[in-house]
Computed example of a mutant assay.
Amino acid sequence: MVTVGIDPHKHVHVAVAVGSDGRRIGKPLTVKNDALLITVLLGWIRTITDGPAVTWAIEDGRGFARRLADGLLLAGHEVVWIPTRLVAAHRKLHAATGAKSDTVDAAAAAHAAIATPELARHRIDEHVRELRVLVDYRTDLIKRRTMLINQLKAQLHVWLDHTPGDLARPKHLDSLTFLLNTAQLGAHVRRVLLEMTSEISGINQRVRDLDITIKEIVSPLAPALLEITGISHNSAAVLISEIADITRFTSSAKLARYTGCAPIPVYSSDQERHRLHRGGNRRLNSVLYTAAIVQKRFHPAAQALLARHEPAKGKRGARRILQRHLIDVIYRAMATDQAAWQHEITRHQRIA
């Protein structure tokens, strides 16, 4: 049996194959984290072994390697997540003193998987996978619609006081269609602009259909999450699709770091100071920003929190404090929803 250890990074992944005796097999592989990632990895492992029993041990960096793990699992392979501390322990055992590199870390992940067979296997929850596809498709449609609206605005030199979202409303789209039909335009120009308007109308309908589907899926999965002011069905879908298993974060503080809502300490000359964290998952950060804005308008407790911190932190600083507080609330809600969800799945399996 062959175990492949992978050290994941944002732009490249490093893979090392290790046999059941703990010795490396073949040469390490550095592969780009792009659309051909799975194809390249599977082609590489076939040059090393023809056996079907291959376990892929990935150092636990699910923000970078989730797509990789999903692809390998869908290709019929077993995938294991290796905790970072376990990788560090096996690196000390198997590497030369002080040695550390991507190849060494990948080999350590493979050794950890061999030595610890009871580690949790990666799995894909079908509901999470559905939401991930729907959310990504909806995001792509919104981008396409915004591009078309901006092109129309540039060609017509109208609607300059309106946002691209205005043409998502049928009333404004009908007004623009009437304008195109009555304005002094060349035949070819009118035809092209009307086709663009028709395409925008079609995208609007597809987005509405997706919103209905997402609402139907999310409603039974996240009742506690949807009770939070500022969390819509689409926001809940983004949270579920990006986070998936909330238990992979052992505390809300780690989730805050993952979403970019945890301030970074920058101490200097015995002065304690924190600055904004511009990293993290920006899609999740955007959801939290929107929720904070909504709560600022409609939630009394949030308004009181902002009023308490604004004199010292300013409006932006107070809003970031509210976002960090929202992480705690969302973490508890998602943990409650997931526990109920998994209990229901277990009950149905027992009945079956």
Rank of each mutant, 00 (worst) to 15 (best):
T84P: 07
T116A: 06
W56H: 09
R275T: 13
W44V: 03
G61S: 15
E199P: 03
D245Q: 09
V80F: 03
S241M: 05
A302W: 09
L276H: 15
H11E: 15
V87Y: 02
L322W: 13
G280D: 07
A339W: 13
E344R: 13
D140M: 12
L225F: 10
D245S: 12
D166P: 00
A256V: 05
L86G: 00
I330F: 04
Q184A: 03
H94R: 09
P117Q: 03
V218G: 00
N285A: 13
G230K: 00
V79A: 05
L326F: 03
H309C: 11
T250G: 11
R347L: 14
R46S: 15
S101T: 06
E130A: 08
R169H: 15
L180E: 01
A96R: 09
Y267Q: 15
G63K: 06
I124S: 02
A335Q: 14
D60F: 03
H343R: 15
G317E: 09
R23Y: 07
V133W: 08
P263L: 12
H309T: 14
S235C: 11
L326A: 00
L148R: 10
E216T: 14
A244F: 12
L160D: 09
E344H: 10
T84L: 11
L221K: 00
T3R: 08
A75I: 01
I45G: 07
A187L: 09
A333V: 12
I246Q: 08
T3W: 15
K32T: 15
D125K: 08
R350F: 06
I149W: 04
T346F: 08
P300T: 11
H299P: 02
G317H: 09
H90T: 01
R297T: 08
I82M: 05
Y289K: 06
Q151A: 03
I228P: 02
A15S: 06
L86V: 01
P170H: 04
R206S: 09
